[in-house]
Amino acid sequence: YQDQEQRILKFLEELGEGKATTAHDLSGKLGTPKKEINRVLYSLAKKGKLQKEAGTPPLWKIAVS
C-alpha cells in the first residue's frame, strides 16, 4: 500500500508542477485497478499530499505546501 502511494506520488511529480491527472489515467499507466488507485488517492489527499480538483472525473495533483 505504501508502495502504491510512492508510485502515484512519483508519477504525479514527474508530470510536473500544477499538472493534474485522473484515476483512470493513473490506473492505465501504473497497471493497477482504478478502485485501488482511488483508495490511495483519497488517502493521500487526507494526508495533505494531494489536491483533488472538483469535476467529473476529479483531477488529482500534488498539493503545494
Rank of each mutant, 00 (worst) to 15 (best):
K35T: 09
L15K: 06
E13L: 09
E17R: 10
K52G: 02
L41C: 04
P58I: 04
L30V: 05
K29F: 10
G55F: 03
S65Q: 00
E36G: 04
K61M: 07
K35V: 07
I62M: 13
W60C: 01
T21I: 14
A54G: 13
L44S: 01
T32W: 13
D3M: 14
G18R: 05
K10W: 06
K61A: 05
G18V: 04
V40N: 13
E53T: 10
L50Y: 00
L50Q: 00
G31H: 15
K49H: 12
L26C: 03
T56W: 05
I37A: 03
A20R: 10
L15I: 07
R39K: 08
R7G: 06
I37F: 01
A23K: 01
E53M: 14
N38S: 05
L12R: 00
A63P: 13
K19Q: 13
Q51S: 13
K10D: 11
K10M: 07
S27C: 11
E5V: 06
K46Y: 04
N38E: 11
R39G: 07
S27Q: 07
Y1H: 06
E53D: 12
G28R: 14
S43K: 14
A54E: 11
A54H: 14
G48S: 02
K29Q: 11
T32Q: 13
Y42I: 09
L30A: 03
L50K: 00
K61G: 04
S65H: 04
L9M: 03
G16C: 04
S43P: 01
V40C: 15
A63Q: 12
E13K: 11
Q51K: 15
A20Y: 11
L41M: 03
A23G: 03
D3H: 14
Q2R: 12
K47L: 07
K49C: 11
K10I: 05
L26Y: 00
E17T: 10
H24M: 15
W60R: 01
L9G: 01
T22Y: 02
K61H: 07
L59D: 02
A54D: 10
L59F: 06
K52C: 07
W60V: 01
W60I: 01
Q2A: 05
T21N: 02
K34D: 07
G31F: 08
R39F: 06
G48F: 02
K52N: 05
K29P: 04
P57E: 08
P58F: 02
G55I: 02
H24R: 11
I8K: 01
I37C: 08
F11V: 12
A23C: 07
V64I: 08
K35W: 07
E36A: 13
K49V: 13
W60P: 01
E53W: 04
K47C: 07
A63W: 03
K52T: 05
H24I: 07
K46P: 01
F11W: 07
G55A: 08
L12A: 02
L50V: 15
T21R: 04
K46T: 07
E5Y: 03
L50P: 00
Y1S: 12
E5D: 04
Q2I: 10
L59Q: 09
W60Y: 06
I37S: 01
D3N: 12
K10G: 11
G16Q: 06
E14A: 14
T21E: 03
S43H: 10
T56G: 04
A20F: 12
A63D: 08
D3E: 13
A23R: 00
K49I: 15
Y42K: 15
T32A: 13
K35Y: 07
P57N: 04
D25E: 13
E14K: 14
E36V: 15
K35R: 14
P58W: 02
A23H: 02
T22V: 01
L12S: 00
T56C: 15
A63R: 12
L26K: 00
K35N: 13
L50I: 14
Y1K: 13
S43G: 14
G48V: 00
Y42H: 14
G48M: 03
G28P: 04
E17I: 06
K35G: 12
K34L: 12
D25I: 13
E36R: 13
S43R: 14
G18P: 05
E14C: 08
K29Y: 12
G18T: 06
A45G: 08
K61R: 15
E36S: 12
L12G: 01
E14S: 12
A63N: 11
Q6E: 14
S43I: 12
I8V: 12
T21M: 15
Q51C: 11
L9V: 05
L50H: 00
L9C: 15
L30I: 09
S65W: 07
L15F: 05
W60G: 02
K46A: 12
R39C: 08
V40I: 15
V40Y: 14
R7M: 09
L12M: 14
K19C: 14
Q4R: 11
T56N: 12
L12D: 00
A45T: 05
S43A: 13
R39N: 09
G55S: 09
R39Q: 13
E17Y: 05
Q4G: 05
I62S: 06
A54Y: 14
W60L: 00
N38F: 02
V64Q: 14
S43V: 11
K34V: 14
E36P: 03
G31A: 12
H24L: 02
G55V: 05
S65C: 15
L30D: 01
K46R: 12
I62F: 06
S27L: 02
A45L: 15
T56A: 12
T32K: 14
R7N: 08
K52P: 03
K29R: 12
